[in-house]
Design a protein around this nucleic acid. Structure first.
Lengths: 135, 135
DNA sequence: AAGAAATTAAACCGAACGGTTGACAATCAT
DNA sequence: ATGATTGTCAACCGTTCGGTTTAATTTCTT
């Protein structure tokens, strides 16, 4: 359940790295859309949009249901959720980290108020090597 | 606070789309590392690793503190958090979506048990155009 | 001052990306 | 059947990517 196929997550993040494709996903969050509908708002050829859609499909981010001559696309929530989980791995780290930073800044601030901090902020050294360290 | 610079998020997701860079981030989650330390586990030239690190830095995912001849890298949690927030936009969608799907499957199941469902599952139509619709 | 160490810079290479255009295929409407 | 509609495919093009190698730069050590 915490096993990501590496390859898959590569393609998910790659798919998400393009603004056009992210907009398509956002559009799909509002409901199913045909290829033409997805392409329309974007200033590019239909073929180009079609390629973007294929990238999204390849990443497993959307499904396609061929319905006569039109292809209906739908969000496939699984992989987005996977990417989300992946990032969650870092959540504890960054919240703790931001926390420490905040405390640090507050401390500096207090010091400055007392009138002695040069406050060059040269080496905050916010997150230094911890108990669970190995290098 | 919910405003992402598009360009920035492009580079964040792009940085995350490479396994080598993700491993570097994971390593950095364990504490600060030098360029050489980050490069060592990866089977590539130091120059190549250095480029990867620059990509991470360009995306704002890490900071670098030049310390004599060695460069010390640290995770910069902000952008990861941003990416996480971005994905959270879809969280409601996909949980609700999976929910509906589950209910649907359970319903079909019940029907099948009663012995009358053709269960062709042709057009599940799980998430169709909603109130907040515009097309 | 000389040399080793840590890292970047520059030039290069093949592959992938994101776009175009033009041809093709399938389906719907008349 | 004719023709419009919807979408893909294939070839092409310039740019970016991820890697290499060799050279340069800075700093530490002796």
């Amino acid at each position: 359940m915490v096993e990501f196929s590496e390859h898959r997550i590569d393609s998910v993040f790659h798919a998400l790295s393009d603004a056009t494709r992210r907009l398509m996903l956002r559009e799909l969050a509002g409901g199913a859309r045909s290829v033409g509908q997805l392409a329309e708002p974007h200033d590019m050829s239909l073929a180009a949009a079609s390629k973007h859609i294929k990238v999204l499909e390849g990443a497993g981010l959307i499904r396609r249901e061929v319905n006569g001559r039109t292809h209906i696309c739908r969000l496939e929530p699984g992989p987005l959720s996977t990417a989300h989980e992946w990032l969650t791995f870092y959540e504890q780290f960054w919240t703790e980290r931001l926390d420490v930073l905040e405390r640090l800044l507050r401390a500096e601030d207090a010091k400055a108020t007392r009138g002695d901090g040069p406050s060059t902020s040269a080496t905050p050294s916010t997150h230094e090597t911890k108990p669970g360290e190995d290098r």
